[in-house]
Design a protein around this nucleic acid. Sequence first.
DNA 1: AATGAATGAGGGTTCATTCAT
DNA 2: TATGAATGAACCCTCATTCAT
Lengths: 234, 234, 234, 234
Amino acid sequence: MTEKHRPKTRKDRIMDAALLIFAEKGFQNATITEISKKAGVSEATVYEYFGTKEDLLFAIPEKISNDTFEESSKVIPYIKGVEGKIRAILLFYVQLYQSNPDYSALVLLQLMSNKRFRQTPAHEAIRKSSHGLLDCIREGIADGTFKKDANPYLIRSMLMGTVEHLFIHWHMQGMPKRKPSIVDLLDSFLEIVFDGIRTRKEDSGTTLYLKLEDAKVLEKILPKKDAAAKDKTK
Amino acid sequence: MTEKHRPKTRKDRIMDAALLIFAEKGFQNATITEISKKAGVSEATVYEYFGTKEDLLFAIPEKISNDTFEESSKVIPYIKGVEGKIRAILLFYVQLYQSNPDYSALVLLQLMSNKRFRQTPAHEAIRKSSHGLLDCIREGIADGTFKKDANPYLIRSMLMGTVEHLFIHWHMQGMPKRKPSIVDLLDSFLEIVFDGIRTRKEDSGTTLYLKLEDAKVLEKILPKKDAAAKDKTK
Amino acid sequence: MTEKHRPKTRKDRIMDAALLIFAEKGFQNATITEISKKAGVSEATVYEYFGTKEDLLFAIPEKISNDTFEESSKVIPYIKGVEGKIRAILLFYVQLYQSNPDYSALVLLQLMSNKRFRQTPAHEAIRKSSHGLLDCIREGIADGTFKKDANPYLIRSMLMGTVEHLFIHWHMQGMPKRKPSIVDLLDSFLEIVFDGIRTRKEDSGTTLYLKLEDAKVLEKILPKKDAAAKDKTK
Amino acid sequence: MTEKHRPKTRKDRIMDAALLIFAEKGFQNATITEISKKAGVSEATVYEYFGTKEDLLFAIPEKISNDTFEESSKVIPYIKGVEGKIRAILLFYVQLYQSNPDYSALVLLQLMSNKRFRQTPAHEAIRKSSHGLLDCIREGIADGTFKKDANPYLIRSMLMGTVEHLFIHWHMQGMPKRKPSIVDLLDSFLEIVFDGIRTRKEDSGTTLYLKLEDAKVLEKILPKKDAAAKDKTK
DNA sequence: AATGAATGAGGGTTCATTCAT
DNA sequence: TATGAATGAACCCTCATTCAT
């Protein structure tokens, strides 16, 4: 906000150009020459700032993912309830990916499958977000929001995998304008997941699923009709 | 079964070697020299069978994914119920990916983000499976198994995205031996998804979800103990 | 004439195909594979008949140029006068080149500048024709048809060079239909050359070229006006 | 003249080396490796300056033929008479070809039969010279120097074809020292051609070609015997 | 005689990277 | 700090040619 609006530094210009070109043609098919040309500097200058083509690649998500993590860190603590927190974390992701398609293309198509990227400070921030998600899920299990037997890793894979898959497909189709944007889908998505892992009654008691041949028997055990009302009326 | 167990053809040996090396070092970092050496043929021979390095890359999933699709096509029709079908389709995938890690690494890390691969006959088979999934979901919505307002594309992205994410992570961590293998996770995973999108009442009779304060009441209505057994007790 | 019209031998089919393809794409850019395919034989068969790609190249003009030389040898001796002989030799060439464009393309564009071709039996026949031309010229000089100081080598270069140049240009322009075909040009061409090297007196009488300062003197020797008319004394 | 005699640039060194090697072994058999070695630069440097092996080939005649055309353009206009102009144009060619045998070998043996070369700026200069020749011939026809029915294209083919043929033969024989060099031959050559296409009467006065049945009449008009001498009056 | 299959040998081209200025 | 110029190091791909059958 109070940032001085100084002209982009050479370094920034290089990274901007690199993001564009890496996203467009992939890491291997992008050339330093092309990037330097787009950035308006010489090739040697690129090497002044980034020792290696791969260093340049990894430098791009570093700042962005850190910023995103920090920003989300400022907000998450104020959110009550694990479901809300999870929603918030994913929303950060989805918004970032959606508002910056080059970045999401870079991360999802170029970096995600790069083993060396996983040992990078840039990936650290992503891992922290991912870990935050895991913590939320565990917390939800611990506090009874989610089923005791839920597998947190599986849940996290569902959350991240679905979001990533949606974006990958979006990119692969040439990023068409979507009626329900991915952001729009988020709540339906989360509702399905949460619905599948939430405890039915909360904490105490036992939830049984009975298939009754004859509804009349119900009368014997259910004095009140509304006992049949379920969480998922919607 | 009655196949003559003839020695692997040169072509097969080349594809085997290529799969190994592509999976290990990635398409760009693999060299034809290395592949031909591992296959025990000359480089020129590689080009006899595959016009291009990329042709070789794409030839590998072509056979496998077609075979898998055909095999699954033989089984799926005999499965009653969309949930079973969906489970079967995913199981085919997961088993293929798990039993052939090089192949899953190739597909998930090298090919999935390759735009040209998407215009390939090899990808066609994958797309057909993916479309089969979509059809099942739609069928489930139509026949009342799933909620009317479920978004089939979202569901599919959940199914595929989760599975892919699990495998990608597995690969990225160096394919550790997992206690609950990904195949093992499949049912828990599907239960969550189905649980989130199923309509609560089923076709005949009435399915009731009772929240019982006291398990003893069951004795009144359930003469036989096993009557309480349900499709998805878990 | 009495040749049995047997089906083309494999060898002939190969040479036909080679002529076509060599002429079209040049020696270097033609491939044995393509030639063998067009000939309807295997590559190995090409090597049965011709030890080398270059051998195949050289084999093509061998027969043709020998045939042409022989044929012209049958005719030339019966022609009286060196000019007629020269005309006949060139006519053979021009007709051959014009009626078989692939052959002339091969000879003029591929072979003429190939040093090894000059040591070839195929070139021998060409050289013999060329030498025949030289002999005619010398004979013409000796018998007083041509000027004593004419340079036979120069004359021959004029004769061959002009013809070749006309054909090379024709090929380079894509062999357009020409109104005056090259054959048609031959006589005008020869007339110019002969005119330039002929001694001025013809057979009978004496041809004198007088430069008259004063046209009036003509009246003294030329009773009829029109006797002086002639640009084209021939 | 006042040019600083700076050391040859890398680009020049590459072109020099390429000319040598292309002329010696032909375009196809020359390798970039060999050229770069002879030029004392790396192969990559060759590609810095010339994007392609063929680009390098075409770059060589570009400069030379342009220079030659320009130089000749400076001189030609000052020459009176089409014969003199034609002689000048050809002399430029012959001198260039003779003084730079590698260049003439390149042009006559490698480039002349290269179809792509004909669409090259390098060939444009050659075409301009060639067109200049044509213009001179036409001018000669128009101003009465040459016969009205002379075919300019044929004449040009005679001029160029002969010169080229002389040089091609010279190269094919290993460029022997010639007693009458090709330059030396030029005038005899032109005299033959001109003689064959000139109108007999010259500008002033009237040139008449008389065929005299009886040489005695000459005595009436030609007091001096030597008036009849002239094959080569000029 | 004919060929399917295989390959040795090499060439053009590309680029990330370096370094003197 | 910035860069123009240069290159080392590979890699993909081609094809004439061979040989067992």
